[in-house]
């Protein structure tokens, strides 16, 4: 799994290449949390375009990041979901707390 975090003002864009399961989620969590602190980020945008697989471990990762960012008054958004993952998202009820956009630009425009 490859994770790249880039900053756009106080929005942290996280691009992940690879599958999210229990095994990969531990390192993923650590990388995101470190970068989030270091860059003093507020909002988080997950770019899902190169994530072919995610199970319920990914739901836990996103909920945990949502908790961290809401403590700073931030929000979490996702872009470019694959169909398999879309269905895991729908089940999880994550859409109640997480915004979904078509593109990173759209997410950046909407997040304050």
């Amino acid at each position: 799994m490859n994770v790249v975090c880039t900053m756009e003002k106080r929005n942290m864009i996280i691009k992940i290449q690879g599958e999210i399961d229990h095994h990969t989620s531990e390192a993923l969590r650590e990388k995101i949390d470190k970068a989030y602190e270091r860059y003093n980020a507020k909002n988080i945008i997950f770019d899902f375009s190169e994530i072919p697989f995610m199970d319920s471990s990914g739901i836990g990762v996103i909920m945990g990041r949502y908790r961290n960012s809401s403590q700073k008054g931030g929000q979490v958004a996702i872009v470019h979901l694959q169909p398999q993952i879309e269905r895991v998202f729908q089940l999880s009820g994550l859409y109640k707390i997480i915004h979904r956009y078509e593109t990173i630009d759209e997410a950046l425009k909407m997040l304050q």
Binding site: R29, D55, S56, S57, I59, G60, V61, M63, G64, R87, V88, L91, S92
Partner: peptide, 15 residues
Amino acid sequence: ELERSGMGFTVMETF
């Protein structure tokens, strides 16, 4: 505490 969401069985039953 391990950030589990409690959705594993629900995913299995849905899929």
